[in-house]
Amino acid sequence: MTLASHWRRVVALAEKRLPSLTRMRQREPLPILLNRRRIYIVPTGFGLGFAVLLCVMLVGALNYANNAALILTCLLGAASAGSMLVAFRVLNGLTIGTLRADSAVAGSSIRVSLDISTNDEARTGVHLDVHEQQLALQVPAHGAATAEFELLTEMRGWLPLPRMRIYTTWPLGMFRAWSWLNPDRQVLVYPRPEAFGPPPFEPQGDADRGRPRVGDELASLRDYRPGDPRRQIAWKLSARHHDLLVKDMEQPAPKEDWRLDWDNIHGLDAESRISRLARWIDEGHQGGRRWSLQLPDRYFDIAQGDEHYHRCMTALALQP
């Protein structure tokens, strides 16, 4: 029992002093400022190989009492050691700021962009590992660079950002300075619409359904009939004909407003209802319809457009 409590204290201490190593369990708010507490440096494979070579050169120079070779070895060694500090300086003081995400439905990938900025000198060779994608970017001095990557989504709802690693091997590729990023941000994934299914229930009853209405869109040209309004005459086209032609303006039949209701879908579990509703909303949005959505806990009044669409989809995505 005491052992366990000791262990907890050790972990707590590590969490406090070495946040970068233990960052996997604790999320933190954006913006993240990289500092010396959380930047770690390890030699790369190439760096280890080069170190072995330096040792060989050192022993050779010492053995043959060749001081010129020793100076050269020391110079190379010092330059390599200096490259470690340069690598550290690439990351030190970087700010991982704004996060932006597109919308995506579950099962497809979602584009996320992350701003990495500095308020002093430019940074070179900054890499970001996300979900086995590697991004390399340069951060301009007093500016920001945007890292864009895609996340695979599996289900609707909030998708937490995965743990990312920011690292650099600049300038010589011998050392990798790295830090874990585990921001507490989430991106929203919309529910996946079902592949096919019935259309929503449409109340029948409007008598003049199907009758064309005068609208803005040009349906066809026809001969002039007395009584047609003058502004509908297609003057230019008529000049090539014997008779006057008239633009027949027409609007397709107005689509019925959909009243989508969670409770009107019978015999399905919640997930299937959500994906059916998602499909209807998707179709309605693409078909230019107006719809309202009744969910168990809230109601969206009849409307149309992008904003309405996103509001409804968000509500669906966050359905328990």
Partner: peptide, 24 residues
């Protein structure tokens, strides 16, 4: 980079213990 590493290199050069007899 090389110019900046000269101090460390010189220091190491001065103080890396020399072999009094060769290893081989």
């Amino acid at each position: 980079m090389l110019a900046l590493s000269i101090p460390l290199a010189l220091f190491a050069f001065l103080f890396v213990p020399r072999l009094s007899s060769p290893l081989w």
